[in-house]
Amino acid sequence: MSPQFGPHRWSAGHHRNDDTERFRGARFTVADLSGARFVDCDLSGVKIVDGYLADVDVSGYVERLVVNGVDVTAYVESELDRRHPERVQLREIGSAEGFRAMWTTIEQLWTATTARAERLPESLLHERVDDEWSFTETLRHLVFITDSWVNRTILDQETPYHQLALPQTAYSTEDAVALGMHVTATPPYAEVLAAREDRMKLVRDLLTPLTDADLGRPCHRSPAPGYPEGPRPVAECLAVVMGEEIDHHRYATRDLTVLESRHTP
């Protein structure tokens, strides 16, 4: 992906918990943190000295991760690229045609994965693995991503959110409800799938006539109230959408493997 299409991590600004800085610069000495769980936390600059790390699972944006004096970042990235070549395809996008090809890849990945999921009982599609989003919740979040970065930002719609859209956990539930989202709802899988298919078609319809000149057009509306303000080019918005699609597909397939192991036909 060319530099102007580079990935960014967006958060919802004031929707964060007011107590987020309580542990900034904290020092834990001879402390038992076994079983601790850090969700959507900024761990940049963290240093662990003489720690005991066994069965540790780390996921997220990783840059310069050093383990026992060895920078393992490049290895992790190259292994992810090997397992998920769509990551490489996304980084190498440099044109409107590249975005169309990337979306075709995403549609193919999700078509296969959705068919795989639907071989399970519906109850499992609503079941969380290790407290991560269920398959149904993941689809709802991707509806939110499309509404935020396509409908609102690129297409400049003020309140485009589907009622079944599910924002990130850091986003205020009260604010999401005010925007028309029923975040605590437990809709049937078929309803969520219909919303998801509608939003995927929306992206396809947007990309079909897209030209290289369109990619640089600035979008002035933020993805959702509370996000950082400022213009973003169409290309950047599309890159966020496709990056989210790829990342959540990886999480979904990981968890489907666990759910399949629980299911005895």
Rank of each mutant, 00 (worst) to 15 (best):
L259R: 05
D156N: 12
V234R: 01
I48C: 09
G69N: 04
F144L: 09
R262N: 07
S148D: 04
P85L: 10
A195R: 09
D156G: 00
V76N: 06
H141N: 05
E245P: 10
L238A: 01
R82P: 03
M181V: 05
V183W: 05
G243T: 00
V258R: 09
H14I: 12
D50M: 08
I145P: 09
Q4L: 14
D40A: 12
T159P: 02
T136I: 00
R100P: 02
H141T: 03
D57R: 15
V70I: 14
D42H: 03
G45H: 01
D175L: 09
V177I: 15
N151C: 11
D40N: 14
Y161W: 13
D55A: 05
E197N: 14
A235K: 03
M1H: 09
F99D: 00
P225M: 10
T173P: 09
D214M: 01
G226N: 07
D32K: 09
F38D: 02
H162N: 13
I145M: 14
L33D: 04
T113V: 13
M181L: 03
G98D: 02
N68Q: 13
E118R: 13
L210W: 02
I93E: 00
V203H: 06
R91F: 05
Y61D: 11
H249R: 08
E21K: 11
Y75Q: 13
P265M: 01
P228G: 04
G45P: 00
P187Q: 03
G60N: 05
R24G: 03
H162M: 04
G69I: 06
C41M: 06
G94D: 05
T169Q: 13
P121H: 04
S44D: 07
S34L: 06
R64D: 10
H263E: 03
N17G: 06
R24N: 11
C219G: 02
L125T: 04
D40G: 05
D175H: 14
V62K: 02
V58C: 07
D255R: 14
D81Q: 13
R152M: 00
H263I: 03
Y227G: 07
W10S: 05
T253S: 08
E260S: 01
M242T: 03
F5V: 00
G98L: 05
D18Y: 11
T208G: 01
I246M: 04
A74Y: 08
I48A: 10
L155D: 04
W103D: 07
L139Y: 06
A178T: 08
E132V: 11
S261M: 07
P167T: 08
A176R: 07
P218R: 04
E97W: 01
P121C: 07
R9V: 10
S261C: 04
E122K: 03
D50H: 10
E245R: 10
T113R: 15
I93Y: 01
A96E: 00
A170I: 12
V88C: 11
T146F: 12
H8G: 08
D19C: 08
V39G: 05
P7E: 01
T208P: 00
S123M: 09
G180E: 01
L166Q: 10
V258F: 13
C219T: 06
F38W: 12
R119T: 13
